[in-house]
Design a protein around this nucleic acid. Structure first.
Length: 244
DNA sequence: CGTTTTTGACCAGCGC
DNA sequence: GCGCTGGTCAAAAACG
């Protein structure tokens, strides 16, 4: 099972890297639109930083992205702490700005920002009064089905709704761990397949059933199909970058 | 009635 | 100094 996972992971990874290389030349021709506030834009000459942060109970790799236009300036440096973008795929007809990440948030503001017709919502963690974590959520201007959530700070308490979050992310939101990192001149997409697969095993089953060969076979089949679905989703998403 | 959301006002940072 | 913009505040409204 691990061997199959490893092979499928490498296949998927190579596929994404090939796609990104093919897009590289196109991106080089794109003129940055928003340059006014230097803090909102990453400098192309800045050093590459990859932080392995723990956000919402699952790992998220954050790096400087070459797709800041996708995230509409939501990704910016925070000198006080780390900032982690998470892209969540939602129903475009759903106008709510809710990202089910397992934490309790209180909305304290909303703004229409320049360059994006969709409003940006500001949230504070309301589970613990002492928790200073903030979250910004805004729809991508290029793909309104994508909600870009940016987390600032680190929770100082446990995740209250972890199981709900995992189930929702894997089954409903189809969340994509789509962080893009500039490694030199080549952008690198980091996929965390161990945390974000659409597959969710039947945790309510007793351990005796989980150990059974039938369940193991089912488990392997579901994992394989999950990887295929992930590949198809990324293929669809990457094809959107081709569209003007 | 307590909590959450909405929304206009205000403030600070930045570029010109 | 002025204007623009993003972020936050706080009163009012909505909600359960």
């Amino acid at each position: 099972m691990l061997s199959i996972m490893h092979i499928n992971y490498n296949t998927l990874r190579n596929y994404i890297l090939d796609l990104l290389r093919s897009h590289k030349s196109e991106e080089d021709t794109i003129t940055p639109v928003l340059k006014k506030r230097k803090s909102e834009n990453f400098k192309s000459t800045s050093s590459n930083v990859v932080a392995n942060n723990k956000i919402g109970g699952y790992n998220s790799h954050f790096g400087r992205t070459s797709k800041e236009d996708l995230c509409n300036g939501l990704l910016k440096e925070d000198p006080k702490g780390f900032v982690s973008p998470v892209c969540v795929y939602t129903d475009p007809s759903d106008s709510s700005m809710v990202v089910k990440d397992g934490y309790q948030w209180r909305k304290y503001g909303q703004k229409v920002t320049r360059g994006n017709p969709y409003p940006r919502a500001y949230f504070r963690c309301s589970f613990a009064p002492s928790c200073a974590v903030k979250k910004k959520v805004q729809r991508s201007v290029q793909d309104r089905s994508i909600l870009v959530a940016t987390y600032e700070g680190e929770h100082n308490h446990a995740q209250p709704y972890r199981e709900v979050a995992v189930a929702n992310i894997s089954r409903n939101n189809r969340s994509i761990p789509c962080s893009v990192t500039n490694k030199g001149s080549t952008p690198l997409v980091t996929l965390d397949l161990t945390q974000q697969a659409s597959f969710q095993p039947e945790l309510e089953k007793p351990f005796s059933e989980i150990d059974s060969p039938e369940f193991q076979k089912l488990l392997m089949e579901q994992m394989a199909s999950s990887l295929i679905i992930n590949k198809m989703q990324f293929q669809r998403r990457c094809s959107m970058f081709h569209q003007p």
